[in-house]
């Protein structure tokens, strides 16, 4: 298990490094000199040259990439073009809001999705199973921004149960502000997870080792947990792990709609202002988190299933 975890970790670092290299190269592929884009059309040639040196753009490309890696390792992601604040500081200020939003959405999706999928599989072909199926497919089909708008309309505007915008202050206020946005992102994942869990449960339930467990008179709940669900939950874990990337993009919509602070809102703002260092820093951190999420889901599966530990 330790060997497997180390292997996976090294692979993840390599993936992040490749992603960072591609990002740096992209800056050069984009037409126009970054210094000119920052300073605007009326900048003097001296000022442009000065900025190029300050940004290290006068160095050869390989040197720039190595410098960039060195800076990242020191936690330096560059400076905000307008305020001169460290990008890493700005990004890490916003990151917790997005992380908690995504984590709560995943919890929603995982807990409700697995429970519904499990229930459907155990009670297959009853009307409740059919109903769960209809709801699942329904939630999958609705885009998260539509879900966000309608949930604001229903719970915040008409019913006035929950606050519509902002992140709230303090723990309780923070929690009530989280419910609607995380529901908007997570609800379509409830459908996905439920469908996947149901399908893989039905497959595992037909396997001989489940019949063998029944032949020893083990209680049904026990068989469901340690013989069926432990195997059937694996595709859902992979789905959620890779789904974190999708959740980040959903977070962009939702943070804008709910006027929440966060990485999504930050990226939208920075792109509008052509604030490239911030875009780059935010994307880099996001990439790191997505790779980390995949790593975690791989490790969870390896922990659940010994057969997975032996392959990479």
């Amino acid at each position: 298990m330790i060997f497997y975890a180390t292997q996976r970790f090294v692979l993840s670092v390599v993936i992040v490094m490749v992603a960072v290299s591609i990002l740096t190269l992209m800056l050069h592929v984009v037409p126009g000199d970054p210094a000119v884009m920052i300073l605007g059309p009326r900048a003097t040639p001296e000022l442009i040259e000065q900025t190029r040196v300050a940004m290290g753009l006068d160095q050869p490309l390989p040197v720039q990439i190595v410098t960039f890696f060195g800076n990242i390792l020191r936690g330096d992601l560059g400076q905000d073009v307008f305020t001169g604040r460290a990008v890493s500081q700005i990004v890490f200020e916003q990151l917790p809001y997005t992380l908690i939003l995504i984590t709560v959405s995943i919890l929603w999706a995982a807990v409700l999705g697995i429970a519904l999928g499990c229930y459907s599989a155990l009670r297959r072909n009853t009307w409740l199973d059919t109903l769960t199926g209809v709801i699942s497919v329904g939630t999958i089909s609705i885009p998260s921004f539509v879900m966000a708008l309608y949930s604001v309309l229903l719970f915040a505007v008409w019913l006035r149960w929950l606050p519509a915008i902002g992140a709230g202050e303090g723990v309780w206020d923070g929690v009530t502000h989280l419910i609607l946005p995380s529901f908007a992102i997570g609800v379509s994942w409830v459908g996905y997870v439920a469908r996947i869990v149901r399908a893989s449960m039905l497959e595992v339930m037909g396997q001989p080792h489940v019949r063998m467990a029944r032949a020893y008179g083990l209680p049904d709940g026990w068989i469901t947990r340690s013989h069926i669900l432990k195997i059937a939950v694996q595709p859902a874990v992979t789905l959620i792990g890779t789904g974190v990337a999708h959740l980040f993009s959903a977070a962009v919509f939702v943070e804008v709609i709910f006027a929440r602070p966060g990485i999504g809102a930050l990226i939208v703002q920075a792109v509008n202002e052509r604030n490239y260092p911030i875009v780059l820093g935010a994307v880099l951190v996001t990439t790191g988190i997505i790779v980390l999420a995949t790593l975690i889901s791989d490790l969870v599966i390896a922990w659940l299933d010994p057969r997975q530990r032996e392959e990479l």
């Binding site: 396997q207 001989p208 080792h209 019949r211 063998m212 467990a213 032949a215 340690s226 013989h227 432990k230 195997i231 659940l304 299933d305 010994p306 057969r307």
Partner: peptide, 12 residues
């Protein structure tokens, strides 16, 4: 059972 390859719980 007939098939020992699949009769034991693979994750335990």
């Amino acid at each position: 059972f007939q098939d020992p390859m699949t009769s034991l719980n693979p994750v335990t």
